[in-house]
Design a protein around this nucleic acid. Sequence first.
DNA 1: TGATGTCCTGACCGATCGGTCGGTCGGGAC
DNA 2: GTCCCGACCGACCGATCGGTCAGGACATCA
Lengths: 224, 224
Amino acid sequence: MAMPTPTEHAAKVADTAQDTHEALVSGRDRLLACAADAFAQRGYAGTSVAAIAERAALSKSTVFHHFPTKRALYLAVIEKAVADFSQTLDSVLDEARPLDRQLEDYQCQHIAHILDNDQVTQLVLRELQKNASKDSAHLVSDVLSANFQRLVDFISQAQNHGLIRDHVDPSVTALTLISANVFYFQHRKVLRYLPNFTCADQPRRYAQSVSELIFHGLNGEHPQ
Amino acid sequence: MAMPTPTEHAAKVADTAQDTHEALVSGRDRLLACAADAFAQRGYAGTSVAAIAERAALSKSTVFHHFPTKRALYLAVIEKAVADFSQTLDSVLDEARPLDRQLEDYQCQHIAHILDNDQVTQLVLRELQKNASKDSAHLVSDVLSANFQRLVDFISQAQNHGLIRDHVDPSVTALTLISANVFYFQHRKVLRYLPNFTCADQPRRYAQSVSELIFHGLNGEHPQ
DNA sequence: TGATGTCCTGACCGATCGGTCGGTCGGGAC
DNA sequence: GTCCCGACCGACCGATCGGTCAGGACATCA
């Protein structure tokens, strides 16, 4: 399935491709990667097939050789993004350590992950925002539920052990934690212009502050 | 400046316009309203001038009579949205009442407001997400800063009065509160598919839960 | 050597895009 | 009356859109 030899054409590609996907020898893989970038940056309607082909140093026709329609390419990109997204954050919440430390670690790892995979994250978020009805139901159960359910279970468990007061809603807590990170991710470039906000370029510090806030609350005791 | 008489054309418009903007007699106002809907639903690139004109029951040429370019129409829509956005939530945090009640009220009013003006909110959020650099700097200072700074000041003040522990960062707190509402707004349709999340269709209850959580924290005392 | 299949290409298609142009129409000003 | 003006329109433009098609380059297998 893999290409046997880097042909003369592939050598030319390595010279002309302007992205970070030069290492991908397969035209199809290069298309997927470049399309992900393009769709994430400009959206579906704002991205032309010709632009994707140019990024991948291929002709527009070749795009339609690998994918029947533009929409099919888009869905393939989304599918790959979801697959990549779902295989992380699996080991943070399991160890036997203080509750607040686990929450802090989860929050830090989560924000680091979405910042590392920013193109893909933006794509998934954009997809989650619009259709919402039938199409993206599986998207939710695959991506959002993965993080969400893991957090909810963890909080519920801690609640059953008496480590968290009974009155809090685990699902609301989980959503608040995720919201903070997603909002930071979506608007991080613009947060720099906010006066009094000092975490704009320090995601880790932000995640720590949020988890500390959620854990102790505004009127809690023993801040440290 | 206002139209003197509803001409025969205006009467025809009232019949054919399929939106909720039939009451707007001025073609320009109708264009702005319909363009806001269209841009919010399909984005800038996904919305054609012809589609906007059709919604407003006008010809495409008339759009260019009122606005020099499609981009100018888009900016006019954004500008109007920002102006509408900035003149709310002014009186919630001023009264002399318990801190937790004020926070709860703010959170409830804020989420109600963005849900009521969903098209416009979506437009502003979408604009905030992308450019981020020079273009939308004023957008931030106008919209986000308006809510943000008000909240930060309020929390800082309460902190100075000893009502909030010193260790919390007011700006992080404000951002967490806003994040929760924005995330709920952006993904509310999809949250229904989340198991264990019971607030998907109860924004007020969600806002109350969030403010309660932020105020008391996970390990706080006296839940009620 | 020829047949076959994959990858890729340039030329081309109809449709639609944003935008222009010339012109119609009705209502004040005088 | 007639003059002007803003609102509005149909027809049209070049450019670009997504997508098609016939065929070339090349590797594999017979």
